[in-house]
Design a protein around this nucleic acid. Structure first.
Length: 678
DNA sequence: GTCCATAGGGTCCGG
DNA sequence: CCCTATGGAC
């Protein structure tokens, strides 16, 4: 694997704590995996002593797969799944700790606890309210209110926000979960933190000695996840994290845009940077930079590329039709459908696109996360199984029972040869499904598929059927049960439709961002401070594009609260990076209220100072200075804000290379470097 | 049952 | 901002 100098520095870094500011598209996953590999092969750190944390199962899976693929080439025997137990989401690693390392019995939990979904917790709360006759208002919004109450409690808020029995409910819910031996997602980490801290204080030895803790997307950590990392450090682990403060788009979920820097302070971490973007054309990068919070040293590695196209459409329907035409055109010119994506701000915006694309025969996939809980029959089935499996003797009368034998020496279970259908029949599922009902066949198949997976899991874990099923059900909430999860399949040749949020982490050669109207992008929100996040969100969306980016807005939006005409985000992009194809009279209807004066807008942007300065400095096309490059014989000097005065070593139409006294040779992109010629 | 004041939500959605 | 569900007052 070839690494650039910055990536190499991060991999080879020896600090006790290191946080890598990985700019968008700079190969952060590559660095993370190389780090793991380097630690293992050069520093001889066993995989078992590494904790590698991600936010999604998908990311964890990708890291493990890439690691397995790399090591499979080498002569040494491959990595066993057993060795990668510390590789996973925060929640799955915490689960593992609680099951195997931490003394949860001290708190009153049993080792065979279950993980419950937020929905299950809400149900439990409702039961409690009924039982205890608690006076709770707004029960249909219980989930959010409980979250609030907890947050307030953890932050030590004095004045209660709510005046009903919510606080009492919160306490009782905690006790009830303990009694029932159940953990929510949050509990997994919270309880882990508590026990880790307590054990260290009491100097009780538990078999947990991590050498390294390595974190992906570290900017998305919330308070308890930071605490979890702190505990890892307290147990002697060195800290290595990659993340990008400019890609914080989930702060409503508890992270903050300052987390990256807070963490750096807290761990006295060395900050390294990966400035080189390998994904997007220079034009796209330069435009995206306008939306960065700290527009520092992000640099491109590619050609300038096509200008960003700005278009307007009458409304969402007309827009969908024009997108169809454009996509068909692209496809005929050889662009595969899977290289094309359409991003929007709200889920609801996909509906029209879906209808029109389907009618016009454009293959597409919408990114909607579906888990078993969204499929009513499976939701029912899992609940039933959770109830049934509480009875340990459930399968005692099963016809295959005699075949289940434990091998005396290995402890492994001899798996009896029964099919999902056998289990289905034994559990008498048909009795509940009503074989005459319309959807019977489909429902039966879904259940059989689920049973198949449960049986496979049982076999893999070498457990008896009842134990395997119980374990599967106990942690099924954590893994979303992937095969049934309808995620976007990147290999399928179809256009991808998704929200800007869902686009994070992906890339496409052609990206269309639609509905760039004020009220939508940025979304109109109550607090102004949230607008920073909207800018980062737009930044994330733009930087998914490799070659072609198109922004469009409605002149006559049909959504409420959306205002006509382009969002000021479009005006924030320097005009010389844009090919404006807006029409003063979008087809489809009269434009009586399309009052946008594009001429005026353009003039105003041209007058804006920032771009003028840059253009003069480095000869943008169309400015008087444009022919100056490479013609002067004498030594050229530049001044840089951070590096001071340097000498130009080489330069071409895009890049300047200069040497600075204390910093060595640095490369800059003319389009957006802050260099000043002197 | 009906009226009215008002708290809270809307958007994004990992595990 | 603007809308709705809620629950207390009649």
């Amino acid at each position: 694997m070839k690494l650039n100098e910055y990536q190499r520095a991060a991999v080879l870094d020896e600090s006790d704590a290191c946080i890598v500011n990985a700019k968008v598209g700079s190969g952060k996953t590559t660095v993370l995996i190389s780090k793991v590999q380097y630690l293992h092969e050069v520093k001889h750190v066993p995989y078992e002593e590494m904790i590698v944390l991600t936010f999604t199962n998908k990311a964890a899976q990708e890291i493990k797969e890439r690691l397995l693929a790399i090591t499979a080439d080498q002569t040494e025997s491959g990595i066993a799944a057993e060795q990668l137990k510390g590789f996973g989401t925060f929640h799955s690693v915490a689960l593992c700790l609680l099951r195997e390392k931490l003394p949860i019995q001290e708190l009153g939990y049993e080792p065979e606890f279950a993980v419950i979904t937020p929905e299950e917790e809400t149900e439990l709360a409702l039961e409690l309210i009924k039982e205890q006759k608690l006076k709770i208002k707004y029960k249909n919004r219980l989930k959010k209110r409980l979250e609030q109450e907890r947050e307030d409690y953890e932050n030590g808020r004095e004045e209660p926000r709510y005046h009903d029995a919510l606080f009492v409910l919160m306490r009782m819910l905690g006790q009830e979960k303990l009694k029932r031996n159940q953990f929510t997602f949050r509990d997994l980490i919270r309880v882990s933190n508590y026990l880790l801290r307590k054990n260290l204080q009491l100097k009780q030895d538990i078999d947990f000695h991590p050498k390294w803790v390595i974190v992906d997307e570290v900017q998305d950590c919330d308070a308890i996840q930071i605490e979890f990392l702190t505990q890892m450090k307290n147990y002697g682990a060195a800290f290595f994290a990659v993340g990008d403060p400019n890609q914080v788009i989930y702060s409503w979920r508890g992270s903050s845009s300052r987390i990256f820097y807070q963490l750096k302070e807290r761990f006295h971490a060395r900050e390294l940077s990966l400035p080189l973007n390998y994904r997007s054309s220079n034009v796209i990068l330069a435009a995206a930079k306008c939306f960065q919070q700290n527009a520092d040293n992000l640099a491109g590695t590619r050609e300038n590329g096509e200008l960003i196209v700005v278009k307007n459409h009458y409304n969402a329907f007309q827009e969908a039709n024009e997108l169809v035409a454009e996509i068909q055109n692209l496809n005929q010119r050889g662009v595969s459908y899977h290289e094309i994506a359409v991003f929007y701000r709200l889920q609801s915006q996909s509906e029209i696109l879906e209808k029109v694309f389907a009618a016009e025969g454009i293959p597409f996939e919408v990114s909607v996360k579906k888990t078993v809980q969204d499929i009513p029959i499976l939701n029912w089935f899992l609940k039933k199984m959770k109830r049934d499996c509480q009875n340990k003797g459930l399968f005692d009368e099963a016809p295959w029972r005699g075949a289940e034998n434990r091998c005396s020496d290995t402890g492994a279970i001899e798996t009896p040869d029964m099919s999902a259908q056998d289990i289905y029949d034994f559990l008498n599922i048909d009795e509940h499904l009503k074989p005459n009902a319309a959807g019977y066949q489909e429902e039966k198949e879904q259940i059989l598929e689920m049973l198949d997976r449960m049986r496979d899991y049982t076999n893999e874990q070498h457990l008896t059927l009842i134990d395997g099923f119980r374990q599967f059900l106990n942690s099924s909430a954590l893994y979303g049960i992937r095969i049934l999860q309808k995620e976007v399949d990147m290999t399928e040749d179809s256009v991808k439709l998704m929200t800007l949020h869902a686009s994070k982490g992906l890339e496409f050669s052609h990206v269309f961002i639609i509905g760039v109207n004020y009220g939508l992008i940025p979304l109109r929100t109550q607090e102004f401070e949230e607008e920073d996040e909207e800018r980062r969100l737009f930044f994330v969306g733009m930087t998914r594009a490799k070659d072609y980016l198109e922004l469009s807005y409605y002149t006559n939006p049909d959504q409420p609260r959306v205002t006509e005409g382009p969002s000021r985000y479009i005006q924030m992009i320097p005009q010389n990076l844009i090919r404006d194809e807006s029409r003063s009279e979008p087809t489809g209807a009269f434009t009586a209220n399309g009052k946008v004066d594009l001429q005026k807008m353009r003039k105003e942007v041209e007058k804006s100072s920032a771009m003028q300065t840059l253009a003069v400095l480095f000869g943008q096309p169309g400015t008087p200075d444009s022919d100056h490059t490479n013609t002067d014989e004498k030594v050229q000097k530049v001044r840089h804000e951070k590096y001071g005065v340097g000498i130009i070593i080489s330069e071409d139409e895009n890049m300047v290379e200069a040497e600075f006294e204390n910093y060595g040779v640095k490369q800059f992109m003319k389009m957006f470097s802050e260099l000043e010629r002197i």
